[in-house]
C-alpha cells in the first residue's frame, strides 16, 4: 500500500517537474513555473519519505532516483509520440 502511494507521489512529482520545464510539450501553453516547481519538490520529497518508510533510507533513495530517471525520459517521449499521432 505504502509502495503504491510512494510510486504515485514520485511519478506525480516528476510530472510536475516536467510541466515546470520550459521545454514541456504536454500543454500547448506554458504554466507559470514556480507553483509546479514547488509542487514537484513537495511531491518528490513526500515520495522519498514514503519509499524510505516502505524500505530503508538507502534503498528508498535509490528507488526514488531510478523511478525519477525513468519518468524524466518517458514524459518527453510520451509528448513526442502524441505529436506523431496527430501527424506533425
Amino acid at each position: 500500500m505504502v509502495v503504491i502511494l510512494a510510486l504515485t507521489l514520485t511519478i506525480c512529482g516528476c510530472a510536475c517537474c516536467y510541466l515546470a520545464s520550459p521545454n514541456q510539450k504536454w500543454l500547448s501553453w506554458f504554466p507559470s513555473r514556480w507553483p509546479f516547481l514547488a509542487a514537484a519538490s513537495l511531491l518528490l520529497g513526500a515520495g522519498l519519505v514514503s519509499w524510505i518508510a516502505a524500505l530503508r533510507p538507502l534503498a528508498g533513495f535509490f528507488v526514488t532516483l531510478h523511478v525519477a530517471m525513468v519518468c524524466l525520459f518517458v514524459f518527453p517521449y510520451s509528448a513526442a509520440l502524441r505529436s506523431f499521432g496527430r501527424g506533425n
Binding site: V3, L7, W51, L55, A59, F62, V63, H66, V67, M69, V70, V74
Partner: peptide, 13 residues
C-alpha cells in the same frame, strides 16, 4: 532492491 518497482524501472532503463 526495492522489489518489483525497481525491476520495472531497470527494465525500462
Amino acid at each position: 532492491y526495492g522489489g518489483i518497482t525497481i525491476i520495472w524501472a531497470y527494465f525500462f532503463l
